[in-house]
Amino acid sequence: MASDGKDPDETLLAGVGRGDPSAVRALLDRRLPRILALARRMLNDAGEAEDVAQETFLRAWKQARSWTPGQARFDTWLHRVALNLCYDRLRRRREVVTDTPPEQVDTGPAPDAGLMRADLSKRVEAALAALPARQREAIVLCHHQGLGNIEAARLMEISVEALESLLGRGRRALKASLADLAGAGG
């Protein structure tokens, strides 16, 4: 679980701090896809996800030389930074878009005529995007990022009970909006 044992990124991070290019590459190989996926699923926008991932790692580079092992896992820290950046962007969107975002996902045409995988993928992405941000965050952290409940709750600065409430409500909403796809996930 989250807080046990040594941070698996500690050695690589020390290498990054020393300017070791192989450590930079290894750390990016290990963590960049995760952070990019997190941002993509939170923001539902490829360009913004890339911006968030880039900014997250630029901040990590600044921290690398002064990183104090044992305070927080680097992966958790990356998630926190990326999530903050995602919320900044979500807030800006709300300020720019004066219309209330649609609560219901456009379910499109009847899907039982054999939706292609790409269509399914779009439907799921749209359903996730239509969730309230905190429910989406809980699902992305626990399901997609594979964090344990304690780590996810700590990251979201809520209790495990509150996390479970967000997960339960989020999954119920998704189930309802994707009900016509039951059995289509393969």
């Binding site: 990019l36 490829a46 399914l120 993928s121 799921v124 992405e125 997609h144 796809l181 996930g185």
Partner: peptide, 8 residues
Amino acid sequence: LLDLAPAQ
């Protein structure tokens, strides 16, 4: 279904 949500 959730697994189908695109990563990048």
